[in-house]
Amino acid sequence: MPVANSGLVVVDKPAGMTSHHVVSRLRRIYRTRKIGHAGTLDPMATGVLVAGVNRGTKFLAHLGAAEKSYHARVRLGVSTSTEDAEGEIITTASSEALSALTDHDILETLTKFRGDIQQRPSAVSAIKINGKRAYQRVRDGEDVELPSRPITIFDLHADNFNREHGVIDCDLQVHCSSGTYIRALARDIGDALGVGGHLIALRRTAVGVFSLADASTLEELESAEHPPLVSLDEALPRCYPPLAVDTEQARKLSLGQRLSPRGLSGIHSAIDPQGHAVALVQETAESLRTVFVARPATL
């Protein structure tokens, strides 16, 4: 498949649709079976879903560690079986407990969740346990409790407090590491406040360098004569610092061969004299090696 027909597409996913359903729609839009996505969004969630087209699917693995940003609406005072609005109510806090809880108390509690923390993923997550998704085990009646894992919350703020209807609703703005579960964050904040909590709305605003400003709706993509595509030539240097290579070095990288070390730190995108992104490279003590070849010599 030509590199010219490969790249990334940033979708503004609508509510009520699975990420897999989005991929199915994209396959029809781009007329290829080679479509994948990075970072599943639950059906209730909206916002940024990055998908790969053709060879772009192989680049998705290198977006896996991307930081993410969210706007979330959280309801304090009620906990549910799924930690979101679709689950059954498990506990309801007393009106006295909620009345005693001030906005300042909530903001102060958020400080405990900033930085490097341990988080227990939601039991209804897509994490596999012995080859079977956790959420499927829950649906089958199993008791599931996943082990905690390290995550990082770079920034966390709350505002728009609403105390109507015997609960406290508030908006969270979250900037976090990959692997963070926002529904689990809502659960844990509610537990830390002693009143329970769950997620009632979620919108992902960014995945790494890609934000809602880059996103198109499925309807916009379907109506476009030429659906937009972030080419690999644009995506690689946007995600990783560019590294200029000459024609011969580019040829070697396209074959997966190694170059002499240059004293680099981290992953870089190798760019040839024509401005083409050839590969992602990473330096070891002995050489500069490829970790992803965007333009194989065979294409």
Rank of each mutant, 00 (worst) to 15 (best):
G208V: 04
T92H: 08
Q173K: 13
Q249T: 02
N5S: 12
I182V: 15
H157I: 13
L218Q: 00
F161E: 08
G16K: 01
G56L: 12
D155T: 12
K128F: 13
E86P: 00
P261L: 11
R149T: 05
R295H: 15
C170V: 03
L212Y: 10
T102D: 08
R163D: 11
V209F: 11
V50D: 00
F113P: 01
Q249L: 09
G87L: 05
G36Q: 02
T92M: 09
L264V: 05
R73Y: 11
T180R: 00
I267H: 11
P227V: 03
V22K: 03
S94R: 03
V23W: 02
A65C: 07
A93H: 00
Q274V: 12
E96Q: 15
H175R: 13
Q249W: 01
C239Y: 09
A51G: 12
L146Y: 12
A72S: 07
R204N: 04
H198T: 01
R25L: 11
P43K: 01
C176R: 02
I117D: 04
L202V: 04
R139E: 06
L98G: 06
G196Q: 03
D171K: 11
I89H: 05
S125L: 04
A158E: 04
D105V: 04
T205Y: 02
A277W: 00
S95T: 14
V230H: 10
D159G: 11
S19F: 02
P242I: 11
A213W: 03
G36E: 08
I168E: 06
E67Q: 13
V74E: 09
F161N: 07
E220Y: 08
L243A: 12
V278P: 00
T18D: 01
L172S: 09
R295T: 10
I29H: 10
L288F: 09
F292K: 07
L146V: 10
A123M: 06
G56Q: 09
D272A: 03
L156C: 08
R203I: 02
L259H: 09
P242E: 10
K252C: 15
T247I: 15
Y30A: 04
L63D: 00
G7C: 10
L202E: 00
L98M: 08
Q282L: 13
R238G: 14
R114D: 07
T111E: 15
L299G: 10
R31K: 14
T109W: 03
D188K: 01
E88S: 07
A285T: 15
L232R: 08
H198K: 10
E142D: 14
P261H: 03
G208I: 00
E83H: 07
F154W: 14
S265Q: 15
R55G: 01
N54D: 14
R27P: 08
Y30P: 01
T32W: 00
G194K: 02
